[in-house]
Amino acid sequence: MDSSSLLKLLSEEYQERVFDGKIITDVATVSVNPGNWVSICHSLRDDKSLLLHSISNFGAIDFREKLGGYQIVLTVFSHQFNHKITIKTLLPAKEDDSPIVGTISGVWPSAEWFEREMAELFGIIFEGHPDPRHLLLDDDWDEGYPMRRGWSGKDFVVKPEI
C-alpha cells in the first residue's frame, strides 16, 4: 500500500484514537495520546490488512522546550507489503520529571531493548517492562540521563564556540 492510502485507512479505521495524520518524507505519520499508545500498537499489529510485524525505528526526542515533553517516535514495517507507518506520541513532562508510558514489548518483543535504552538515556518510565535494567550505560551509573537537553556530568566537557 502506498502512503496516502495507508494514511486514509488509518484515519478512517482508527479515527477515535489517532489524530494529526500527515505524510512526512513519504511515510504515513499519525499521532496518538499516551493513554492509547499500547492499544493502538496492538490493533495495528493485529490488523490483517497491514501486517506490521517488525519495528524499523523506535526512539525518543527531548522536546520539552518546544512542545513541553518527550516525543516517542515508532516506525513499524511490513515485510509482506513493503510499507511502513510512523506513530508518534507526546509525553508531557516538566523540568526534571520522568514521563510514564506503557511498554509495547508485549506487542513487538524487539521493542524491549529500545525501551531500555530510552529509559536510561531519557529517563522515560515504561510501565510493565519485563527487564528494566540498563542497556548501554554502566549498572551503577548515577549521573542522570545524558540525552536530556542541558545535561552535564562530572567528566563532561562542552565543546567551546569556535
Binding site: 548501554l136 545524558p146 563532561f156 566537557v157 567551546p160
Partner: peptide
C-alpha cells in the same frame, strides 16, 4: 570523543 561525550573515559 573529548567534547560533548558522556560515555568515554578521557
Amino acid at each position: 570523543f573529548y567534547y560533548d561525550c558522556y560515555s568515554v573515559l578521557k
